[in-house]
Amino acid sequence: MSTILVTGGTGNLGSLVVARLRDRGHEVRVLSRRSPEHPVDLRDGGGLDAAVEGAEVVVHCASAPRGGDERAAGHLIAAARQAGTVRNLVYVSIVGVDAVPFGYYRTKLKVERLVEESGLGFTILRATQFHDLVAQVVGAAARLPVVPLPKGVRVQPIAVGEVADRLAELAATTPSGRVPDMGGPEVRTLPELGRAYLAATGSRRPVVPLPLAGKAYAGFRRGGNLAPGHAVGRMTFAEYLREREA
């Protein structure tokens, strides 16, 4: 069994990765700003060297859509090099980071490049959007009298637990480079999923497909965020909603 550090280990994805790795008998260190074990802010790196020391694998789940991911990755890579024991740096990214010119996606792509050029053994997994994120987007829009959702944008949501399963599997193997993407079982438009969400939550608000502008919107409309050839997820959005409402 290995000593594995999980960054973002108290988050939506990271906490599930931690649980799965511990179930497999690994010694797991939980790192996040809120972790009682290793309370580290990767953006300044204080305490990071001690957390990484002796770790054989690092699973990097921490991410901040508001900024700082590149700096955080730089600190993590430097600490992993200094430790000298890390044989596999596993990074979870997003399908479409090289195809959709969206700010957060561009940052994730830059972090991928940092990982690839780190000199460490690495594994990169790209996944499509989580069901939770789609529900969050629709839920926020549903606070209005009508529900505006981007017209013509398709998504392929996947269960976060299924991505956690795959990351735990990858953490226990040798470095694999960029592995096949993970996509959810269905490709649907956001307005379609919005109507499903509203029906599941008992809301009668109308959904309004809203045309937008810009290169990022065009990239989503082209389907740059999709992985139809890698539809390996099992739980559909409708099944997620039933489980959520139950």
Rank of each mutant, 00 (worst) to 15 (best):
N12I: 12
K215H: 10
R20E: 12
F220R: 14
F122Y: 15
G202F: 05
L198S: 08
V134D: 06
A55V: 13
T123E: 08
D69T: 05
T85K: 06
T85L: 02
S176F: 10
P206G: 13
S176R: 15
T174D: 12
T10K: 11
A142C: 06
A140S: 14
M1F: 14
A246H: 07
D98R: 10
A55Y: 08
R81P: 01
S203P: 04
G194F: 03
V52N: 06
V6W: 00
A80K: 07
V138C: 00
F237G: 04
V59I: 09
L149N: 05
G233L: 09
G184R: 14
L31T: 00
D49C: 11
L42N: 10
I124L: 08
H230P: 08
D132T: 11
E169W: 11
E112S: 14
E70L: 07
A140K: 14
A79F: 05
V97M: 09
E239P: 07
N225V: 04
P185G: 00
R20L: 08
V6C: 02
D41M: 09
V155M: 02
Y105N: 05
P65H: 10
V30L: 03
Y91E: 02
A231K: 14
T189M: 13
V134M: 13
R22C: 09
P180R: 02
P191H: 08
K151P: 15
P150V: 02
V111G: 14
P185R: 02
D41L: 09
V163P: 15
G224Y: 03
